[in-house]
Design a binder for these strands. Sequence first.
DNA 1: CGTCCATTTGACCAAGCTCAACCGCCGTGG
DNA 2: CCACGGCGGTTGAGCTTGGTCAAATGGACG
Lengths: 246, 246
Amino acid sequence: MDVQLETAHPLVARLDRYVALTQAERLALRALTTDRVTIKSGRTLVVEARQSDSMFVLRTGWLHTSTVLKGGARQILRIHQPGDLVNTSCLAWSRVVATVTAVTAAEVWPVPRARLTGLFIRHQRLAALLYGLSIAENVAFCDRLKSLGRTDAEARLAALLLDLLFRQRITAPDKPDELELFLTQSDMADALGLTKVHVNRVLKKMTDEGLIERTGRHVRIPDVGKLIDLSGFVDRHTEVCTDWLP
Amino acid sequence: MDVQLETAHPLVARLDRYVALTQAERLALRALTTDRVTIKSGRTLVVEARQSDSMFVLRTGWLHTSTVLKGGARQILRIHQPGDLVNTSCLAWSRVVATVTAVTAAEVWPVPRARLTGLFIRHQRLAALLYGLSIAENVAFCDRLKSLGRTDAEARLAALLLDLLFRQRITAPDKPDELELFLTQSDMADALGLTKVHVNRVLKKMTDEGLIERTGRHVRIPDVGKLIDLSGFVDRHTEVCTDWLP
DNA sequence: CGTCCATTTGACCAAGCTCAACCGCCGTGG
DNA sequence: CCACGGCGGTTGAGCTTGGTCAAATGGACG
């Protein structure tokens, strides 16, 4: 089996960040996926309320998960970057809970939920690690909740940018202070509980104040510390505790 | 071993709702807990940023999980009812991520995280079930996010009441339209991203409109359907999909 | 070159916040 | 037994953040 191919597996790469995977574990993870799916920018991968029994590992590109309310308003729940597990709710319900849309062209590798059965039986350490990551994601949602519930528009925007930046740093440790922002201002608004008009105004204000520099979709953050201070951002996904794993 | 005692174990009771537990599984779950801790109303169980390596099963009473921001504002992240797992973040970090406070007098049973190791090794079905529940909780957070990000104060309040009501229904199927609301209006405000003054006003408005009836801390909801309609509430925890479990 | 979509900007509006006062209840201590 | 203090709830007046509506700009692409 080609070693090159193997380390390129997005799920292996992701979990290998937290523990040193054994060869058997790598093989088991690879066996979870067989297909590859590519999606064009703007297209949906799964649609709310439809049937689905697969989750997906994001290989390349950005996705987001969203719901729409009765009035037509949309809430973006999560923005996914390479290595993320998407549509995990298929493990708890057979109907899709939230729509997954491609922000950029993207490649995802489906993981039929039935394959997890064997993984949990034979690879308890991976099972425990997945559980730990799910809990970490829980905490990430708590941070979002705090942001939406108790901070103003500028702090929310800052927190969003920092979240994207810090997650990008994991796979691209060069460029520690700049990122390509593939979201539209309308997307940001829907992620932050604001309107696109207000997002635009606040971005302008932050640009004028020198907090961020924008050229097209490229964003540079001259003083990351200042933004962290302003937003109350906490980096979380960088490391998780693994001492209780089998 | 006393059967009475066994079925009274809050974790056994909780998981037994989703799958029919075997005797071995019940014993394994019981072995997770040895101690009992009682907390007085208003006291904290764990405090943000302190060290902790235990989660807790809530046996009786209500708790909530919260964080405070730099300015002193507080965000309540989750309100816990009997059967809930609390402080699960101890599986991902050794430092406590959010303060847990007793809303009423409460009894919790500690689960040291080291004990989960054996559970994941020997009881893969329970491991998978825990994973599924963690994912379900994730989706519950998504619902909260949608509520805070894209609905007005009345809808948020309605969603909060319905969430508490539906979770109470699981353990108390009598009383399908009334509940004892142990939260102060200040608590509700901090859970919903509002101020206590505004919560008071909206509660009054809802009372005047006949949407809810209040006598002290007792709340009755004459027309649950109307509230559901108004809030976009979705019942989630009632059932989860278990067909992929080992 | 026209169309579509994202961004930008302005004028006005309102949901919810702030500040402040007051009430009612309950537990405590004189 | 009553006075007091504290906490939670209630209500009013005025203000601010962010929303609404609308129109103009500008880039990308067929």
